[in-house]
Design a protein around this nucleic acid. Sequence first.
DNA 1: TATGCTTCCGAAATCGTTTTCGTACCTCAA
DNA 2: TTGAGGTACGAAAACGATTTCGGAAGCATA
Lengths: 337, 337
Amino acid sequence: MVTIKDISEACGVSTATVSKALNGYGDVGRATADLIRETAKKMNYYPNAAAKQLKTSVSHNIGVLFIDETCCGLTHEFFSEILNSAKTEAERLGYDITFICKNIAGREASFLEHARYRKCDGVLVASVDFKSQAVQDLVYSDIPTVSIDYVYNDRSSVLSDNVEGEYELTKYLIEHGHRRIAFIHGESTSVTDKRLSGFYRACEENGIEVPDSYIMESRYHDIESCRDTVKILMDQKERPTAIIFPDDYSYIGGRQGLEEMGLRIPEDVSVVGYDGIRLTRALSPKLTTYYQDTVEIGIRSVRKLIDIIENPKTSIAEQIKVQGRIQEGKTVKDLLQ
Amino acid sequence: MVTIKDISEACGVSTATVSKALNGYGDVGRATADLIRETAKKMNYYPNAAAKQLKTSVSHNIGVLFIDETCCGLTHEFFSEILNSAKTEAERLGYDITFICKNIAGREASFLEHARYRKCDGVLVASVDFKSQAVQDLVYSDIPTVSIDYVYNDRSSVLSDNVEGEYELTKYLIEHGHRRIAFIHGESTSVTDKRLSGFYRACEENGIEVPDSYIMESRYHDIESCRDTVKILMDQKERPTAIIFPDDYSYIGGRQGLEEMGLRIPEDVSVVGYDGIRLTRALSPKLTTYYQDTVEIGIRSVRKLIDIIENPKTSIAEQIKVQGRIQEGKTVKDLLQ
DNA sequence: TATGCTTCCGAAATCGTTTTCGTACCTCAA
DNA sequence: TTGAGGTACGAAAACGATTTCGGAAGCATA
């Protein structure tokens, strides 16, 4: 491995000068600096990350908290797309990505300890149990964090606008003449709360009263759960004319359930999803859904995180909302025609 | 941050002794070692990764080469499942995972340079352009590597048995009475070659001649491409009775294409996929496919990599084959009944 | 008592950087 | 000539760990 010392010898200067030249400090002569930089390139020099980190305590490494307790973290298309986009953006900006976990060299540790151990400059928090103590310890530590799709007090986050999204989606149904709209939502989380609020707002604004039996809890990204729930939902005399599913993936289950009951989409009942993952374009009938801009979410969260890292003084905690949009498919019947 | 020095002071011993006690060296007294370990735990000590790495040149960090040039690396369920499983296993064994890319702190570099910069103990090579020079430079360096689904000379790899898999799948079709079998394969890669070879072997063994027009090239994980290809394929007078798709995801497109031609599955034509991703269980009709054990692939590749890292002398280069199995759905019609 | 062997521990060098502070030299005005 | 001020560079001390090597103590044996 070629070190700073090799370069210093090759150039006949001290290691201090080499370091300064390579890092663009002012107090080194123009000619010397040029020579050093050229020699470094010629000798194929790359700094030793460990030494640099040891001395400066910055690692150019961002951690990602992306735990798969439900076994669908990484394999959930929504999250893997975000991760993919975040990875690309981070690399472009010169940061590496390391997964944070609860192991340090084989020994049990907390997320925070792990992040410290690896000296992560910052951590992206996504797809975890946001309310758990372990995660909160990390978020409220001195390590910069950005959370995705969840808001912590005084911390930055990037969110798709769930209130607005569900509001738009509901309004879309209403504009197509639906007034008996059911909402199968996911587990109780802040995301769920927001979607519910957007849903209710759209209903209220249009003078629609929603019977309790139209609101059912299922689970995100769970085919079976949605299939069963939809059956219970549709087993009442005053059936809804439209159903909102927790997400696109649930549509697969919902569709099965409806089919087993002999109900056709959209002739007998209209449905919409949420996420706009690629998959939906492929299912038939093509699902009408609310597209979340995963690429944008990934990019914005990394940029914000790096902003906090590099400008700790001026960077402010903020909630960055990423707009989505209705993606029309063929699962909503227009009752007004 | 609590360092080894703090512990040494608290215990009234030297830092050398602390280090030795914590690393289980023999030449430290029983009582002293116990005291040191207890104190370390009490003071919530964790070693400084950078310092450790600087001194020992081992990082407990494994790199993952997982490039997304085709924009489907991470979001391809097959790979994201492998990554997920590899991540879990690596963490269990005390290793962290970092993505390898072509950027070092903002400066352009090669994969190899990046891996050296981060002092990766080893690298998992998956889902890249295996034949590119940059990847080969890395694989044939002194850094331990394990490749997934691709074999390099004298290097270890973990593969699903593609020859056997496609052979089994073809035999399954033949056993169900099919003799006019078409194969839409993916881009030309070593995986494709193996699958073709398994396919041909099964045909030969059963005295089946395959017309050239039954072999068509499409692309992996590409809905549109498969949809178009299947239309061309079925636009000939002597139509096949069964089609093998490049993978499960392609089934979505293939199904569309067939539907648009008014062909029903499996009444008019039988189809099979490859991979066995979760999605297939949800599509209807449920796809008959060859399940690849992604969890096992992830685990085995990490274990092998760590074996090479920790036992460089005794570990031998080998190809580890992971068995899959036929996963029966409802897309193959039994012509013999 | 002298000798040799263990056992236990510490001093100090080292890994490859960064960074402070001092110094030598030069320039220029008074 | 002197002194102030600026520029260019280097010596050396860190950062937090590991590891070599030597030495002190304790004990048994001759």
